[in-house]
Design a protein around this nucleic acid. Structure first.
Length: 164
DNA sequence: GCCAACGTTGGC
DNA sequence: GCCAACGTTGGC
């Protein structure tokens, strides 16, 4: 069974459109520099898992699309690139420190599901992303939450091949 | 721009 | 190992 995650991105930095434009093989979700998120990327998030794509720090924060993890965690090479904004001199081939997964675009939601809608929904009001001060950029989502978001948005499930 | 909340750093 | 200071995130 797939697991489900919510990934946050500032649309001015990397938007759902940017992911949609990426090659079919997906795009690396790089630049995460938080140990809790790193542990998820390295150990917990696997190919076949579903991703709620969340836009943060913008006019209308909320879930705007769906993606799928297409590659398990592997070292984030941007940590070893001195020209990268996410360069970390402590990272080495033997100890990469930072990890990323690849994700591929699956759906734009027929309409975005805003924070206000999440907060007002009985099954979604408890989502981690709504918690004040929650800065984790990669978060676990329950199967119930995944289904509820899709139902609210009126979107079919890209991970469920038997569905229309 | 404000500010609350959190993670990280560094002095001790 | 404590904890204050600092930087960052992110909604508003």
């Amino acid at each position: 069974m797939p697991r489900y995650w919510l990934m946050k991105s500032e649309p001015t930095c990397f938007s759902l459109d940017d992911l949609a434009r990426a090659p079919q093989g997906g795009a690396p979700w790089d630049g995460v520099r938080n140990f809790q998120a790193r542990n998820l990327l390295r150990d917990e998030i696997h190919a076949g898992d579903g991703v709620l794509f969340y836009h943060s720090s913008c006019a209308e924060p909320g879930i705007v699309g769906l993606a799928e993890v297409v590659r398990n965690g592997y070292p984030d090479h941007t940590a070893r690139d001195p020209r990268s904004d996410h360069y970390d001199p402590k990272a080495s081939p033997a100890n990469p420190i930072w990890y990323m997964v690849d994700v591929a675009f699956r759906r734009r939601l027929p309409r975005p599901v805003t924070r206000a809608e999440l907060a007002a929904h009985p099954l979604l009001a408890g989502m981690m992303v709504l918690r004040r001060g929650c800065r984790l950029s990669v978060q676990p989502v329950t199967a119930d939450e995944w289904r509820a978001v899709l139902a609210v948005a009126g979107c079919d499930d890209p991970l469920n091949a038997s569905e229309g």
